[in-house]
Amino acid sequence: MLLIHCPYCEEERPEIEFANAGEAHIARPSDMDGLSDQAFEEFFFIRSNPKGLHYERWRHIHGCARFFNALRDTVTDRFVATYKTGEPKPDIAAEGKDQ
């Protein structure tokens, strides 16, 4: 069972309190009505699914109930960073170095 640092609870909490919520930093377009088919496809269907570092959303559903973002390595399962919704992405190059 992983430990996940919740940026709102400010401590590591057991994985079973959390739910994954897919890839992060995919903003819902403000002009949904005028969205082209291709732009909708990219927004709704296309995901990066990388091997390695992945920006993703988690929800501390059985804790503070906040959604937050995480940078996780999909190979090792290691969480490199977690940060609050709305905060900028941490730099992968910088975060990846201390592995």
Binding site: C9, R13, I16, E17, H62, G63, C64, A65
Partner: peptide
């Protein structure tokens, strides 16, 4: 105090 899990219940 905190919200958490106990067995299969919140």
């Amino acid at each position: 105090a905190t919200r958490t899990v106990f067995g299969k219940a919140e």
